[in-house]
Computed example of a mutant assay.
Amino acid sequence: MNRRDILLHGVRLTAVAVLLPPTARKAQAQTAAVVIDNFTFNPPEVKVKIGDTVTWTNHDDIPHTVVSAGKFRSKTLDSDDSFSFTFAAAGDYKYFCSLHPHMTGMIKVE
């Protein structure tokens, strides 16, 4: 704890600053990107932390979706459309394209 005495209009004030160690400061949320191209999710597996957002962007010239049963579901994404989801809980989130079920991916949230 740091103390600093300040004299203001003849009155002595004491200011106290509490500095938190770097590990106690809240980390800022991050964004991870997944590209949909040539009927694949790339990268096929992404590791993020709770509070992070993943954004999928379709670079194919045909529509795709991003679906994790009971967790999230995108609208149909045309070329260059994106879908984002922020992960609030830890776990493994398997997902797929509902139009092309052989397309699969995984988000691991720690």
Score class of each variant (00 low, 15 high):
G10Y: 03
R73D: 04
L20T: 14
V18A: 11
T40S: 06
N2G: 00
L8W: 06
M103C: 06
L77Y: 05
P101T: 11
S79R: 10
R73L: 05
T53N: 04
I62A: 01
D81N: 04
D60M: 05
P43Q: 04
P101A: 10
V48C: 03
P63L: 10
D5T: 14
R12K: 15
I36G: 02
R4D: 05
I62D: 01
V11C: 03
C97M: 04
V46Q: 00
F72R: 12
R4K: 15
V34K: 06
F41L: 11
D60N: 15
P63C: 05
F83S: 06
I50K: 13
A32L: 00
T53Y: 02
A24W: 12
G10R: 06
S74L: 04
Q28H: 01
S98R: 09
S82Q: 14
G105W: 06
H59Y: 12
L99I: 09
T76C: 04
D60H: 08
S84W: 13
P22H: 02
D80Q: 08
G91L: 12
M1C: 04
V54L: 07
H102C: 01
Q28L: 14
H59F: 07
I62C: 03
A88T: 14
I6F: 12
M103K: 02
A88K: 13
G105P: 06
S68W: 04
T65C: 08
H9T: 13
P101H: 07
T76F: 07
T65S: 06
D5F: 15
A17T: 15
R25V: 11
L19H: 07
M103I: 11
D52G: 01
D92C: 02
G105S: 09
G70Q: 08
T76Y: 09
Q28M: 13
V67T: 10
F41N: 07
F39T: 01
S74E: 03
I62Q: 08
V67D: 05
T53P: 04
K47R: 13
T14K: 12
T86G: 00
H9D: 11
V109P: 08
T65P: 01
M106L: 15
R73P: 00
Y95C: 03
G51N: 04
K71I: 12
V54K: 06
N42R: 10
D92H: 06
F41W: 12
K49P: 01
H100T: 04
T55Y: 01
S82N: 08
K49T: 05
P43K: 14
L13A: 05
P63W: 02
S98N: 14
I6K: 14
R4Y: 11
F87H: 08
P43S: 06
K108M: 07
Q30G: 00
A27M: 04
F72K: 13
T55H: 03
V34R: 00
T65N: 01
D78K: 10
Y95H: 11
L20K: 15
D78C: 07
N2D: 09
A24P: 04
T40V: 09
F39W: 11
A15Y: 11
K26F: 08
V16D: 00
A90V: 12
A29M: 07
L8Q: 10
R3E: 14
V35A: 15
G105M: 07
F85D: 01
L99S: 05
N2I: 15
I6T: 11
G70N: 10
F83K: 03
V18R: 14
A27N: 02
